Lab assay of single mutants.
Amino acid sequence: MDVFMKGLSKAKEGVVAAAEKTKQGVAEAAGKTKEGVLYVGSKTKEGVVHGVATVAEKTKEQVTNVGGAVVTGVTAVAQKTVEGAGSIAAATGFVKKDQLGKNEEGAPQEGILEDMPVDPDNEAYEMPSEEGYQDYEPEA
């Protein structure tokens, strides 16, 4: 019985440690998101679009440190934060509304985080759909 109880105690310690790591990862992701939003706020009209992409990228980098179902929630929060940063930029006159959601080359930025393969159960990952990809044929 002692062996059984000791095993359960060790398992509990492992769960607590994993929860603490997840909590730490979420806190880091939130900190990076805040950094990115402050970065966007300090940019001029020309830099705002690039700044919004930076927020998304920093958040995406930190999301990889967070495991399990938390990833889905962090990704949703990050996307809403990026959308909010863009709205703030438009409201303050840093950028025109028609410039939001495009990178410096004018290509749409939507789907940055949505296409990231995420499995809350950590069982399997699927690649994003290939609808947006084109076949590449090298020139002879």
Results as ranks from 00 to 15, higher is better:
30 A>L: 15
133 Y>V: 05
46 E>V: 05
25 G>W: 14
28 E>R: 12
3 V>S: 07
112 I>H: 09
87 S>K: 03
107 A>K: 08
103 N>D: 12
34 K>Y: 10
1 M>P: 00
11 A>T: 06
44 T>P: 00
85 A>K: 02
106 G>Q: 05
106 G>Y: 06
19 A>F: 13
27 A>V: 07
64 T>A: 08
1 M>R: 00
47 G>N: 10
32 K>T: 04
44 T>V: 08
123 E>Q: 10
31 G>A: 09
130 E>T: 14
88 I>Y: 01
48 V>L: 11
130 E>H: 11
54 T>N: 07
71 V>E: 01
43 K>P: 00
10 K>L: 09
33 T>W: 12
132 G>D: 12
76 A>H: 15
133 Y>A: 08
10 K>H: 04
70 V>G: 01
114 E>T: 15
79 Q>M: 10
51 G>V: 07
75 T>Q: 10
81 T>F: 11
111 G>M: 15
131 E>H: 05
12 K>D: 00
1 M>K: 00
94 F>I: 12
117 P>F: 05
51 G>D: 01
16 V>N: 05
8 L>H: 00
116 M>D: 15
76 A>C: 15
109 Q>S: 05
14 G>M: 10
110 E>F: 05
103 N>V: 05
96 K>V: 07
86 G>W: 15
2 D>V: 00
29 A>H: 04
36 G>R: 14
12 K>V: 14
6 K>G: 01
64 T>S: 12
50 H>W: 10
19 A>R: 04
20 E>K: 03
57 E>D: 14
33 T>R: 00
5 M>P: 00
57 E>W: 06
1 M>G: 00
125 Y>S: 05
38 L>Y: 15
106 G>F: 06
61 E>W: 11
49 V>P: 03
102 K>D: 11
51 G>P: 02
106 G>K: 14
84 G>T: 05
114 E>Q: 05
129 S>Y: 12
102 K>H: 10
4 F>T: 00
8 L>M: 04
131 E>N: 08
107 A>L: 08
121 D>Y: 08
60 K>C: 09
128 P>Y: 04
25 G>L: 13
21 K>V: 09
81 T>P: 02
61 E>R: 03
125 Y>I: 13
40 V>Y: 04
16 V>P: 00
31 G>L: 10
101 G>K: 15
1 M>T: 00
84 G>S: 14
58 K>Q: 04
116 M>C: 05
53 A>T: 04
102 K>P: 08
134 Q>K: 13
73 G>W: 04
42 S>D: 03
15 V>R: 00
113 L>S: 07
131 E>K: 07
91 A>V: 13
44 T>G: 04
45 K>L: 10
74 V>W: 09
46 E>D: 07
103 N>G: 08
10 K>V: 08
99 Q>P: 02
103 N>E: 06
58 K>A: 10
33 T>K: 00
130 E>Q: 13
9 S>F: 13
21 K>A: 10
64 T>E: 10
74 V>K: 01
115 D>N: 10
41 G>R: 05
32 K>F: 13
50 H>I: 02
76 A>L: 10
78 A>E: 01
124 A>V: 14
100 L>D: 04
42 S>V: 08
134 Q>N: 15
105 E>I: 01
75 T>F: 12
13 E>D: 02
8 L>A: 01
14 G>K: 13
24 Q>F: 15
47 G>H: 12
44 T>N: 01
36 G>V: 08
117 P>Q: 12
4 F>R: 00
140 A>K: 15
60 K>H: 04
42 S>C: 09
9 S>V: 12
34 K>R: 07
96 K>I: 03
55 V>F: 13
115 D>K: 11
114 E>R: 11
54 T>V: 07
130 E>V: 14
56 A>P: 01
36 G>W: 08
17 A>Q: 10
12 K>M: 15
66 V>Y: 14
7 G>T: 11
110 E>R: 11
126 E>V: 12
63 V>E: 00
8 L>K: 00
84 G>Y: 15
103 N>S: 12
99 Q>K: 02
138 P>V: 09
32 K>R: 08
26 V>H: 00
52 V>W: 10
3 V>R: 14
39 Y>I: 06
31 G>P: 00
139 E>T: 03
120 P>N: 08
47 G>S: 07
40 V>S: 01
89 A>T: 06
46 E>F: 03
100 L>R: 09
90 A>G: 01
84 G>A: 15
128 P>Q: 07
71 V>I: 08
105 E>D: 12
92 T>H: 03
19 A>Q: 02
12 K>R: 15
15 V>S: 01
128 P>I: 06
32 K>N: 03
7 G>E: 11
137 E>V: 03
14 G>L: 06
36 G>I: 15
82 V>R: 09
82 V>I: 04
110 E>M: 06
4 F>G: 00
91 A>Y: 13
11 A>I: 15
80 K>I: 05
82 V>C: 11
33 T>Y: 10
30 A>F: 15
69 A>M: 15
31 G>I: 10
4 F>E: 00
102 K>A: 04
19 A>M: 07
28 E>Q: 12
26 V>L: 12
60 K>S: 03
110 E>L: 10
10 K>P: 00
120 P>L: 07
77 V>M: 12
94 F>D: 03
119 D>F: 03
118 V>N: 14
38 L>W: 07
45 K>T: 09
36 G>C: 08
83 E>W: 12
95 V>T: 15
89 A>K: 03
132 G>H: 10
72 T>C: 08
91 A>T: 10
121 D>G: 12
30 A>M: 11
77 V>N: 01
97 K>T: 05
9 S>W: 12
7 G>A: 03
15 V>K: 00
6 K>N: 08
88 I>L: 05
136 Y>S: 14
2 D>E: 01
112 I>A: 02
47 G>A: 13
73 G>R: 07
46 E>T: 15
119 D>K: 03
98 D>G: 09
111 G>Q: 13
81 T>W: 08
16 V>M: 15
9 S>M: 15
105 E>C: 03
29 A>V: 07
69 A>I: 10
139 E>R: 10
21 K>S: 08
120 P>A: 11
108 P>R: 07
39 Y>L: 12
46 E>R: 09
62 Q>K: 14
81 T>L: 10
42 S>G: 07
43 K>S: 03
132 G>N: 12
52 V>P: 01
38 L>F: 10
65 N>M: 07
101 G>R: 11
24 Q>E: 05
28 E>D: 05
37 V>W: 09
41 G>L: 02
29 A>I: 15
37 V>Y: 04
125 Y>N: 12
52 V>H: 01
38 L>S: 04
34 K>N: 01
103 N>Y: 14
21 K>N: 04
134 Q>G: 07
80 K>Q: 04
130 E>A: 04
122 N>Y: 11
17 A>I: 03
107 A>P: 06
95 V>G: 07
50 H>C: 13
57 E>H: 07
104 E>H: 05
77 V>Y: 07
119 D>P: 13
82 V>P: 02
96 K>N: 09
1 M>Q: 00
72 T>F: 02
130 E>Y: 11
11 A>D: 00
122 N>Q: 10
122 N>D: 12
117 P>C: 09
58 K>L: 10
67 G>C: 12
126 E>M: 07
80 K>S: 05
131 E>D: 12
46 E>N: 12
30 A>H: 08
105 E>K: 01
59 T>L: 07
4 F>P: 00
97 K>H: 14
31 G>K: 08
53 A>S: 10
74 V>E: 01
44 T>D: 00
24 Q>R: 06
119 D>E: 12
3 V>W: 03
138 P>Q: 05
54 T>D: 01
138 P>S: 10
21 K>W: 06
102 K>I: 03
94 F>S: 01
35 E>S: 08
84 G>I: 15
108 P>K: 06
71 V>Y: 09
74 V>P: 01
131 E>W: 08
130 E>F: 05
62 Q>V: 02
16 V>E: 13
40 V>W: 04
46 E>K: 10
94 F>V: 03
113 L>V: 06
107 A>F: 15
8 L>S: 00
32 K>A: 10
23 K>A: 03
35 E>V: 10
3 V>T: 00
104 E>N: 05
38 L>E: 06
105 E>W: 01
72 T>M: 14
99 Q>C: 11
140 A>H: 03
117 P>N: 06
25 G>Y: 14
37 V>P: 00
90 A>S: 06
99 Q>L: 15
127 M>R: 05
108 P>G: 07
50 H>G: 09
80 K>P: 02
